[in-house]
Structure formats: structure tokens, C-alpha cells
Amino acid sequence: MPNPAPAATPVPAASQLHHWLDAVTRQDAQAFKSLYDATSTKLFSFALRILVKRELAEEVLQESYVSIWNNASSYQSSLAAPMTWMTTIVRNKAFDLLRRLDHDVEIDGESFDMNIVHAMESSDPTPIQTLEISQDGKALAGCMSRLEGLHRQAVAMAFFHDLSHSEVAEQLKLPIGTVKTWIRRGLDKLRQCLNRLEAS
């Protein structure tokens, strides 16, 4: 699958995206390419805001478009705009990947909410799309806020600022073993919190 187009072009109208999705249900490869070209940059940006690491965002993007190709027939325009539906797929894939990963990837809840909204802003966002994304961000930020202060800071520095464990230890003036333990426990608590929210 090609890399997402670098140009920040506006996403086409929902009616056009719906038309392409409808064609994809009939295994129309050209319509799928058009859909990918029109939406991959914005969806990649969305995935990157969650995962930070480019290679992880690329993996999630590819998995998401495979899912879109296989599940286009399940899309219902009465329930969500096409971009909202695709964004939800990317979000779920990204969160699933976070849960599978070990302590090398953490979540910065303090900035996540606004970043996730900004990542998907368009010139004409639908209210339902903005609401859904904002709610996801707030949920994750809420989980982050439940961590103890220094634990939250360690997790945020490792994830959002992409610092190594040794760099975090140096910044916080703490032993690296302590920092590794805090980050590992912090990520475990975040996963449990996210799982509880999804189950409720």
C-alpha cells in the first residue's frame, strides 16, 4: 500500500466519500485508491497523534485500510459520516496496538485531548465527528490524570517527548530502575482504565 500523500489537501465532501465506499463494496479497486488518496493523509496524522512513532502509525494505517476494504458494506450513512466511520476504525486499531505494546510506548493524556482534535480538524467538521473525537481524547486524558504526579510526568516524558528511560531518569534525577518501574506501572494502569471505559 502506498505511503499517505504528503500534501495536506482538503478531504472531499461526505457524498463523494460515500460514493467511493459504496463502490468499494463491489470490490472497485480504483474507487478504493481514490478513497485512500483523498483520506490517508488526515487519517495518518490522526494515527500519528495517538502513537507518536511514525512506523507504528503507518502499520495502523495499513491495517485500517484493509479493514475498510473488507468492511465497506457494513458502513451505514445514517449512523455516521464516512470520515467519522473511518476515523473510528483507525482509532480502534491504534488503541488495540497500544494495548499490545510493552512499556516502550506510553500515553501523554495532558496534551492528547487537544492534539487529537486538532489532528482531525477540517474546514467543515461534522458536529458528531468532533464530539466523538473529543470524547475519546477526554477519556484518555481522564485515565492519564488518575496517575500519581511524578508517575504521570515520567510516562508523559517517555511518550510525548520521546525520551529514553535513561533520559527521563536524568531529567527527574531518579534511578533508571525507578523510572522503568513507574512507566511500566503507569502504562498498566492506563490500559486497565481504558479497558474499563470500553466495557462500561
Rank of each mutant, 00 (worst) to 15 (best):
M1C: 04
P2D: 11
P2N: 09
P4D: 01
A5F: 09
A8N: 05
T9E: 13
T9L: 15
P10N: 08
V11D: 09
P12E: 07
H19N: 10
W20G: 04
L21C: 05
L21V: 02
D22E: 06
D22R: 10
D22C: 05
T25F: 01
Q27K: 11
D28L: 04
Q30P: 00
Q30I: 01
F32H: 06
F32P: 00
A38L: 11
A38P: 11
T41F: 13
L43G: 10
L43N: 11
S45I: 03
S45T: 06
I50W: 11
V52Q: 14
V52I: 13
E55H: 14
E55F: 09
A57G: 09
A57W: 03
V66W: 12
V66E: 14
W69Q: 13
W69F: 14
N70K: 10
N70R: 13
N70G: 03
S73W: 02
Y75S: 03
S78V: 07
A80W: 02
A81L: 03
P82L: 02
P82M: 00
W85K: 00
I89V: 13
K93R: 15
A94Q: 09
A94L: 12
A94K: 12
L97Y: 04
R99G: 06
R99N: 08
R99W: 02
D102Y: 07
H103L: 07
V105T: 12
I107D: 06
I107C: 05
F112I: 13
D113S: 08
I116G: 00
I116M: 14
H118A: 14
H118C: 06
E121W: 07
P125E: 06
T126F: 03
P127R: 01
Q129W: 01
Q129S: 00
T130Q: 06
L131E: 13
L131D: 12
I133N: 00
S134M: 12
G137V: 05
K138A: 14
K138T: 12
A139N: 13
C143V: 05
R146C: 06
L147G: 13
E148K: 15
G149M: 10
H151F: 04
R152G: 15
R152D: 06
A156I: 04
L163W: 07
L163M: 15
H165Q: 10
S166G: 09
E167V: 03
A169F: 12
E170W: 01
K173V: 06
V179H: 03
T181I: 04
T181K: 09
R184N: 08
R185F: 07
R185Y: 09
R185I: 02
G186M: 05
G186C: 10
L187P: 00
D188E: 13
L190P: 00
C193G: 10
N195D: 13
R196K: 15
E198G: 04
